[in-house]
Design a protein around this nucleic acid. Structure first.
Lengths: 134, 134
DNA sequence: CTCCTCCATAAGCAGGAACTTATAGGTCGA
DNA sequence: TCGACCTATAAGTTCCTGCTTATGGAGGAG
């Protein structure tokens, strides 16, 4: 249920502003206000506009929110991001489904095993877009 | 110059139909006609519609085209896909830029070193969306 | 040369995505 | 309690994206 549908993830990643938000969050969690300020420093955008983007990212399972007082701290959600990455890996080579764990291990080693033990979820297989025509 | 702008890649990945195309191509290169047929087997779409999607994928550097007689064979472009994957990796952990080569190695091993020697391109850093306001 | 196949581009239209302003809901300090 | 943040939602508009039909050009088969 905490499942991140890759499908929605790529839709969310399609927007430059949202990618920018993710890059900001790569440096660590931030309250919405700071995100708004950071984005506005680069291009004119309203606070509600940013808020809406944040919602999309959250619905896509790419970020998480933590409420502290009146502020909402946003952070990257490794699960969602890994799911997307896994999908891409699965494209180039089906066997990469196997390589995934190794992949994660390599990353883990590289970072000195900073945080979580096994982020490696088993995401959806490459599959399944629901297409809706007219 | 053969550079694949990650930026455009994610835009291309945002569409379900295009993701479906990529999944088809994961099984190997195919002429446009087969792609059209395969997509139409799942949902009603016209030949020009598919052709346009293919163009977007090509412009994004996610697929390549090879002309053979009157047919155009499309295939996945590992460079573009790896670039996208690298961007995602860079998000979760900046050091993953290092992990990338290892990552590729793991994949290589898993597949039994089927094809190309070093696909591993050096993609763009996380950066830079051009925002266009009014 | 003529026809047929395969694929791409052109043009036009419709639905949705992203932006805006306005407003409401919490939380904290005075 | 009152007022000042901080953030989310509502409502409305605009523009972009994806779809369609129509058409053109290039490559074999006859």
């Amino acid at each position: 249920m905490t499942r991140a549908p890759v499908t929605g993830a790529f839709e969310a990643l399609g927007d430059p502003v949202r990618r920018h938000v993710l890059e900001l969050l790569a440096a660590g969690e931030r309250p919405a206000g700071e995100i708004v300020a950071a984005l506005q420093a680069r291009a004119p955008i309203s606070q509600p506009g940013v808020s809406q983007h944040l919602r999309v990212l959250r619905d896509a399972g790419l970020v998480t929110v933590r409420a502290e007082g009146s502020r909402r701290f946003y952070a990257l959600d490794p699960d969602g991001l890994d799911a997307a990455r896994a999908w891409l890996s699965g494209l180039v080579d089906p066997l990469a489904q196997f390589a995934q764990p190794l992949d994660a291990l390599a990353t883990e080693v590289a970072r000195g095993r900073r945080t979580r033990p096994t982020t490696t979820g088993q995401p959806d297989r490459p599959a399944a877009d629901g297409r809706r025509p007219a």
